[in-house]
């Protein structure tokens, strides 16, 4: 399965994970021109409960459409982080919403408080997912910033384009910041735990 890139976006219902999945798949598939398959699983709750969306990217037709070993895991709450980090490849990247995720199980993790940024800067928690998309586009090689912006603007309701563009940019600049702080290596991860 060499050329697959498997992404899982997880959290709780109402955080906009499925919309994120769709936008990400659209950006990669339509604007960046790769093969994508986007799936989801969710409970009966429209709000709350656990929710996840998965995007599989490949440069050839995709057979198994669900994520296998993850290249990228976004966890928007602690439970999804705990449940899914074991599925990450050794080289896989964990990205968490540090508003809700306090305990980071592995060293290769980026922590960005998406929801707090949404709350503080935009007074709207619902744009946390768009901020996260901005961060993903900066931190991973899988989607270009240009494509994600085009996809976001094509999907969001009319009249909210500016809000969403700004949210996306906020995500990108937050990502730039965390990228400078080197990822924790196993040794300094332990150090970190001591302090």
């Amino acid at each position: 399965m060499g050329n697959r890139y498997d992404i899982r976006l997880s959290g709780s219902g109402g955080q906009g994970l499925i919309l994120m999945g769709i936008i990400l798949a659209e950006a990669i598939g339509i604007y960046d021109g790769k093969f994508v398959a986007q799936t989801q699983s969710y409970g009966p709750e429209a709000r709350g409960g656990s929710s996840k969306a998965e995007v599989v990217v490949s440069d050839q037709e995709i057979d198994y459409p669900k994520a296998l070993r993850l290249d990228l895991l976004l966890a928007m709450n602690q439970k999804s982080c705990d449940d899914y980090y074991m599925d990450l490849k050794p080289t896989g990247v964990l990205l968490v919403d540090s508003t809700f995720v306090n305990q980071i199980p592995i060293p290769r993790a980026y922590q960005i408080p998406f929801t707090r940024i949404a709350r503080d800067r935009f007074k709207k928690e619902m744009v946390a997912n768009i901020i996260a998309l901005g961060a993903i586009s900066w931190l991973t090689p899988i989607v270009s910033v240009k494509a994600i912006e085009a996809a976001v603007l094509a999907r969001v309701p009319r009249g909210t384009e500016n809000l969403n563009r700004n949210a996306l940019r906020a995500g990108i600049s937050a990502a730039k910041k965390v990228e400078k702080t080197t990822l924790l290596t196993p040794s300094n991860f332990l150090e970190n735990e001591d302090t």
Partner: peptide
């Protein structure tokens, strides 16, 4: 349900 809710190009 997988095919119905899955998205592809």
């Amino acid at each position: 349900e997988v095919v119905a809710h899955m998205r592809e190009k």
